[in-house]
């Protein structure tokens, strides 16, 4: 039997593994963002750090229903968490840096 053109025709598990690694990268990115935020904002940083295992777990969660339909909720976890991080970042940008930056902003 000749080898298939695409090695994944013989082993589709490679795509699955790449996807698992992509989920791992994404959760590591959350961990890095949370650690970076901790420097200036304790509470938002902790919230983002807490999202890290959540995102990783979403990646490990069964990606398909038994009938083969993807479950969009797992991806919504990521979207909602990134949006939450953005909201925290905006709040931190305006309030977190102490009253000076806010006062400076309003005086212009």
């Amino acid at each position: 039997m000749a080898l298939p053109d695409d090695p994944e025709d013989a082993d589709p598990g490679l795509a699955r593994e790449r996807t698992r690694l992509a989920w791992a990268r994404t959760s590591i990115a959350f961990a890095a963002v949370g650690a970076a935020m901790l420097r200036k904002e304790l509470i938002p940083g902790l919230i983002v750090l807490a999202a890290t295992p959540l995102v990783y777990a979403a990646g490990r969660f069964a990606s398909h229903t038994p009938r083969g339909r993807p479950r969009p909720r797992r991806l919504l976890v990521v979207t909602v968490t990134v949006t939450l991080v953005a909201a925290l970042a905006v709040v931190a940008a305006f309030l977190g840096h102490g009253p000076t930056s806010l006062r400076q902003l309003l005086h212009v």
Binding site: R18, T26, S63, G68, V78, V85
Partner: peptide
Amino acid sequence: ARFTLANERTFLAWNRTALA
């Protein structure tokens, strides 16, 4: 399934871009 997985990876890559 491979197309679905590739679609999912693209989504994750954009979300990492968003985080950055």
